[in-house]
Amino acid sequence: MSPLTETGVGRPAAILIAGPTASGKSALALALASGFGGTVVNTDSMQVYADLRRLSARPMPDEESRAPHRLYGTVDGAVNYSVGAFSREAGGILGEIEAEGRLPIFVGGTGLYFRALEEGLSNLPTVPEAVREAVRGRAEGRCTEDLHAELASLDPAGAQTLRPSDRMRVMRAIEVFEATGRPIADFQGQRRAGPLAGRPLLRFFLSVDRDELRRRIDARFVSMLEEGALDEVEALRARRLDPMLPVMRAHGVPGLIAHLDGTISRDEAIARGQGDTRRYAKRQHTWFRHQMGDDWIWTDPDSAFRIAVERLSAPGGR
């Protein structure tokens, strides 16, 4: 069966390009957007932050000039940007892109963002900022296992579903209980459909040889530093933001801050950033393999481009 037959004939409402970091996603998205009147929409939880263009491998200005790009560098690092915020913004942007007659191309490495586009989200309540700050204040200086024990006293069933080491999710469950007086599970069964639910889609996961991906990751991290990533982290460090914020936990940031603080060498910071990124790439691969459906095409960037061109050039395509 040919790739064209496997993916179904007809015009896709959008193209989804996922894959591990350094797999060639952005280049593929830009090539398709340039050739077929597309708009590239960021689907990566770190590239949304304005503070880290270099370290998050955001498209550069010359690349952004070749096709419209949305949701890149639009959020300040002090904001705890969430998958819910992404889903809401992506839905609005999707309507604008379609009104312009352009092809939406969602590209990134954050699996939960892609899931939200189709399957939607649990209808979790908004936690007031005062409650969030109070929970974080109590958590400061406490180990995650202690926080997990606190959650178990509030929501025993919810605590059993979370690893005692998963600090962010444990704190989120505490926040929801503090804000509503109800377990987080009460809300997780209530879902609202995602903005791409029920639409014909062309979905790619870029799979690259493991040794080649490792080489790319290591080389790119060094290039990032040569191109100004350390200056970005130094500016971020000067802001003295909450270390639990997503931007402060971006791959490379903790190690480079430690280097700026004088506690580790530059080479040690590079090795730490490279190692963190390699491990993240492995988790991305595993997550998509087990969490997403069979309608994703696992392939290399060149084959993905060929398949997409076939679909978009076919009768009824663009």
Rank of each mutant, 00 (worst) to 15 (best):
E6V: 13
R311T: 15
A139F: 01
G19Q: 15
I270G: 04
V40D: 09
P195S: 04
Y113V: 02
L230D: 10
S153K: 13
G101N: 09
R58I: 00
D300V: 12
L260P: 03
V131M: 04
R191A: 00
D242R: 00
G293C: 01
V233D: 12
L32V: 01
R102E: 08
L55Q: 10
P315Y: 06
A238V: 05
E119N: 04
F305V: 00
A130N: 09
G120P: 00
H259F: 11
G198C: 09
A14Q: 07
T21S: 15
L4H: 13
V170R: 03
R240T: 03
S153C: 04
P315T: 09
S265W: 06
G108H: 02
Q291S: 11
K282W: 12
A18K: 02
S303W: 03
P68D: 11
R283C: 08
D294E: 14
G38T: 13
A50C: 07
Q284K: 06
M60C: 02
N42L: 08
A173Q: 06
V79P: 06
G73Q: 06
A149E: 15
P128T: 09
E89D: 12
V41D: 05
G181K: 13
D295A: 11
M1L: 07
R216D: 03
R237P: 10
A57E: 13
V41F: 06
P164H: 08
S45F: 08
H259S: 05
F86M: 02
G273W: 04
G275P: 03
Q291N: 11
A13W: 11
L154P: 10
D186I: 05
G108I: 05
H290Y: 10
P156I: 05
L245P: 07
M224K: 07
V40L: 12
T263S: 15
A271L: 11
V222H: 10
P61T: 07
L151I: 06
S153H: 06
P12E: 10
R102H: 05
R272M: 11
S313N: 14
A33T: 02
T43W: 01
E6G: 12
A14F: 10
L117M: 08
I270H: 01
G95R: 15
S56E: 03
E96V: 08
L236F: 12
P128W: 13
T39G: 03
Q47N: 15
G108V: 04
V176E: 04
A50G: 10
G189C: 10
A18S: 07
S265C: 05
L32F: 04
V247F: 03
E89C: 05
P243D: 02
A90V: 09
G158K: 08
S122P: 15
A197R: 14
P68H: 06
P125Q: 02
L28K: 08
L312T: 07
V253Q: 00
E96A: 13
L4A: 14
R88K: 13
R169E: 11
T43I: 02
D44P: 13
T144P: 02
L154I: 11
L213V: 00
D242Y: 00
T7E: 12
A157E: 14
D155E: 07
W298R: 15
S313K: 15
G95E: 14
A130P: 04
G37T: 12
R311F: 03
L154M: 15
R249G: 01
T299D: 04
M248W: 01
V170N: 10
T277A: 14
A116E: 09
Y113W: 01
L55T: 03
R138A: 14
